[in-house]
Design a protein around this nucleic acid. Structure first.
Lengths: 200, 200
DNA sequence: GTCTATATTCAGATAGAC
DNA sequence: GTCTATCTGAATATAGAC
């Protein structure tokens, strides 16, 4: 029995799962574990729970990711790519379109639905404590996001400041207990976003 | 044996620890567990580790706090009171003093030393997932902090926006891998802080 | 007032059946 | 490719000695 025979046996093994099953499972795992991590926290979510959110077990999880750290790196890339895609359609210099996107970001709906929201307010603090490899993956994806936003607002520093303002406001609003206090904080952030754009 | 007798026995029991030992232990527990939580994350820090940071065991910890949740509430109040105290000395309307404080906050030193830094970038995301009682404690202390800052900058909305900008910038800078990217983000936030103050 | 020891649950990760 | 079962260590919390 040599390697060639082994390869033939593997490639002629009856297909027990549909084509692309592996890729689909990985995508679902990425999407659903990200949603759970954003809602409950990444450290607070066990591998069993992250896998079950995608309808599989931890045994399957470890066939797709090396471990929790590797998952967090993958989540960084996938989530920030998704956030970036939302800004990609805006025309450069279209300030009102940028402000509409900012107002959506700084909404009570976003504050109250972390699972469907941006990864930055939900996961940045944990990413700051993650291994360097994860932070490198984050930095790459973050810089791409900032580059796209910079195109729209004209300057990288303005794009960065807009993002830090938005992320800080959503993060702090979620820590507040009452809707009234949340609304007030978001309102102040919306005004600040306009000041930042105006000073660009 | 009645209650009165019990009270006498307790109050005449030989003192095995110095006066104020209990209060001192509680203060140390609060201070050192907060530092550990800011550095490693609150959820990621076990009760044993939080207690050991203060030089005691988890057995002693539970004589001072009902549990982890109660500790987080206490940390919110103590830490935000400390942050508030740093702004209390600034004179109302002294914009340069405010900007000096903001520049310290938005420094690489602060980004690289979470244990000695502000609790907001380190713990807000986890507070957002904590029980309502903890978020109520947070909201009370946060509103007091904003009130003091509002005095200095003239308007509550300006104070709020300044805080969200600073917290977002430090949180995101910590998630970045390289010092260069961190410096650039902080620099953009410093400029934005001036725009926010100018627009007040 | 604090410690040691422990009960119980749950974490991340792996082996082998199918 | 996924599941079941399991190993090992660590989590929160409590009981009782001193």
């Amino acid at each position: 029995m040599n390697d060639w025979v082994t390869i033939v046996i593997l490639s002629t093994d009856p297909m027990r799962y549909p084509r692309n099953h592996r890729a689909n499972t990985r995508d679902t795992l990425l999407r659903e574990s990200a949603a759970l991590a954003k809602r409950e926290g990444f450290a607070a979510s066990g591998v069993d729970a992250l896998a079950r959110a995608a309808g599989v077990t931890s045994g399957a999880f470890y066939k797709h990711f090396g471990g929790k750290d590797a998952l967090l790196s993958a989540i960084c890339e996938a989530e920030l790519d998704a956030t970036r895609a939302r800004f990609a359609a805006i025309e450069p210099g279209a300030t009102e379109q940028v402000l509409r996107a900012v107002d959506m970001y700084l909404s009570l709906a976003h504050v109250q639905n972390p699972a469907m929201g941006c990864a930055l307010p939900a996961l940045s603090a944990e990413i700051g404590r993650a291994p360097e490899q994860t932070r490198l993956a984050f930095e790459r994806a973050f810089e791409e996001l900032i580059a796209v936003i910079a195109e729209k607002v004209g300057a990288k520093a303005v794009g960065s400041a807009l993002v830090t303002q938005c992320v800080g406001a959503v993060t702090l609003a979620r820590a507040l207990a009452t809707e009234g206090a949340q609304r007030e904080l978001l309102q102040a952030a919306r005004r600040a976003a306009r000041a930042i754009l105006g000073a660009g």
